[in-house]
């Protein structure tokens, strides 16, 4: 199997891993958003709790949640390894930095990824760890915990910053993942680029809307 390890540690092999885990996480975001957006339905959390219940009782989701965590871990570790490999390959900084030859996001994927990672730590500490690991409360109470957490304006701001970073990360990452896979030609590349741009605006925007709307509508 040395051919496989050789491939996976090559520059293009590493990029393929980044691309595939990235696309997997992109799909996950849609599922996550489908559930979360139900928080905004004004039914005292009935729809949201129903969704959580369905997810919690589904064995496929249980298995996929392990795959998901693996996906995150591999994407993050590979990203860090690539960052240091590439930093080593670069000879040094130019006195004048050209700004018009690439997008800001494309040159700052590691920085954006780090901000998203810090956001994820806060996000996990808020909900995942107390509920799933420490079992401080059951998933039936999740709706009220979410509403309570977003009463705090600091959290709301942190979540919005996290989502802005996610938007820029996706703006480059979405189309970049396809380019790495070798999916680039005049027939479908314009569509992929447009879809990527729409995705990277709409999905983080809807995510960010949840804490903002909860904060504005549930003030005591």
């Amino acid at each position: 199997m040395s051919w496989l390890s050789n491939f996976l540690t090559s520059a293009i092999g590493r990029k393929l891993v980044m691309s595939l885990t990235g696309l997997f996480l992109i799909v996950f975001l849609l599922i996550h958003l489908t559930g979360n957006i139900m928080i905004l339905i004004p039914d005292e959390g009935a729809s949201f709790s129903g969704f959580v219940e369905a997810m919690e009782s589904n064995p496929v989701i249980k298995v996929m949640s392990i795959v998901l965590i693996l996906g995150f871990v591999i994407h993050i570790i590979q990203g860090i390894l690539l960052y240091f490999k590439n930093r080593h390959s670069k000879g040094g900084k130019y006195a004048v930095i050209a700004k018009d030859n690439a997008t800001w996001a494309s040159k700052n994927m590691a920085l954006l990824g780090t901000i998203i990672f810090l956001f994820l730590i806060i996000h996990f500490m808020d909900f995942f760890i107390p509920m799933k690991v420490l079992k401080e409360y059951g998933h039936h109470q999740l709706y009220h915990k979410v509403i309570a957490a977003f009463q705090n304006p600091v959290y709301v701001v942190l979540y919005v910053i996290g989502m802005i970073s996610l938007g820029f990360h996706l703006a480059h990452g979405f189309q970049s993942a396809f380019q790495t896979l070798g999916v680039n030609n005049e027939k479908y590349s314009p569509f992929i680029k447009k879809l990527g741009m729409l995705y990277s605006i709409i999905v983080p925007l809807l995510f960010a809307l949840i804490p903002v709307v909860v904060f504005l509508t549930h003030q005591k």
Binding site: A11, I12, R14, K15, L82, K85, N86, H88, S89, K90, A98, D100, N101, A102, T103, S106, K107, M109, H172, Q175, S176, Q179, T180
Partner: peptide
């Protein structure tokens, strides 16, 4: 010792 592509696109420009 060349690095890995991250599809930035500055090369093309």
């Amino acid at each position: 010792g060349f690095g890995a592509c991250s599809n930035i696109g500055a090369c093309e420009v």
